[in-house]
Nucleic acid binder design. Structure first.
Lengths: 188, 188
DNA sequence: CTGCACATGTAATGGGTTACATGATTTA
DNA sequence: TAAATCATGTAACCCATTACATGTGCAG
């Protein structure tokens, strides 16, 4: 039905920025919120249907039927503000890499090194992606809050990369590329 | 039934270190893996039952019935090694704080500052907790991999705290306590 | 006219939390 | 003996992913 308030929040929030079809909405969420939030079609459409039934969103007038963008209504904006004001909890952590690493002494050290080098590569790639997006948001007028979420991504990715490097060193294996000189690269 | 391999992995892994009852197992998971992994009773008991039926774990001989610890069998260790060797994916990210922050311009700035100061406090607290655990693991013989997971926690918490501080500054609000002098505390 | 991207939905399934129900053992 | 803690399990519900089913419109 209404899915969780979380999905409603994401949908209403996205539509508060710009009217969109469900399809595009999901694509935008992937591109912009994608670093820290995720929605699938199986959630977006039911959520949109529920919100439309509740009068929080509506199809734009003009061309009717499929392909017509949804837009947020006044009631929807009100609801969005309500949802944002409600308290929330961080979900319990579940990091599959750390879970496996904890039992690392049960397996081939090469396997563990593989996990860590993969994590390092992913983190560095993510960091580069965020840094590339940064100028775009720094110039934007209403993008102050968006910039903050991006910065969270930058910090998080940098920390993860730094950790992976240290971990590889502690296991007696230099990362290969980017050897740890006196002034290591990518300080947090 | 068998729950996901993930829960099996956690249960087998925990029992590979030491025999435990389901109750204590869950408590230990909370205390040791708790920083990056979470299990509830509703998963632990069914997983134990399934693993027992499959011959991966068994009650220790001697006193029978409830309260008798489970221990891992040879087949269980084999299975654990298998599970550890399988590829895995990071779950899609879902950070409720960042989701809300992204739409921060829709609400009272004081609310946003509240989110960030709370996040800052949580991150600093977490970091202190991890640092306190550190000496214990640095001395332990088999704790090399456990130390790595702890370091991940330290890095992550430090990065989160640092980010929250920057975010508060960017919003034109100093963190209050711990003003950002030339040599700020808790550099990453 | 054929394939691809846009668009909307539903159903099956999986996985997980929370609350409930129950009882044994220890400790005050 | 009463309360707290240890211990085990079940049931209801919720959220989410994935796969499936379907149709439209445009570009090559």
């Amino acid at each position: 039905m209404a899915r969780t308030p979380q999905t409603q929040l994401a949908v209403l929030g996205a539509l508060s920025i710009e009217p969109m079809t469900g399809y595009r909405l999901r694509a935008e969420v992937v591109q912009t919120l994608g670093h820290f939030w995720h929605e699938s079609f199986g959630q977006v459409y039911p959520a949109l249907a529920a919100l439309e039934a509740a009068g929080m969103v509506e199809r734009e007038p003009g061309a009717a039927g499929a392909g017509t963008p949804f837009r947020i209504t006044a009631a929807g904006r009100e609801r969005l503000r309500e949802l944002l004001a409600e308290p929330f909890r961080q979900p319990p952590p579940r990091d599959p890499l750390l879970l496996r690493l904890f039992f690392g002494d049960q397996v081939d050290p090469a396997l563990v090194r593989g996990w860590l080098t993969a994590a390092l590569a992913e983190a560095e790639e993510a960091r580069a992606r965020y840094e590339a997006l940064r100028p775009e948001l720094e110039g934007a007028p209403g993008g102050r809050y968006r910039l903050l979420t991006l910065l969270a991504g930058v910090h998080g990715a940098a920390a993860r990369a730094q950790w992976a490097r240290e971990a590889l060193e502690l296991l007696g294996e230099a990362p290969g590329h980017a050897p740890p000189g006196p002034a290591g690269p990518g300080g947090a």
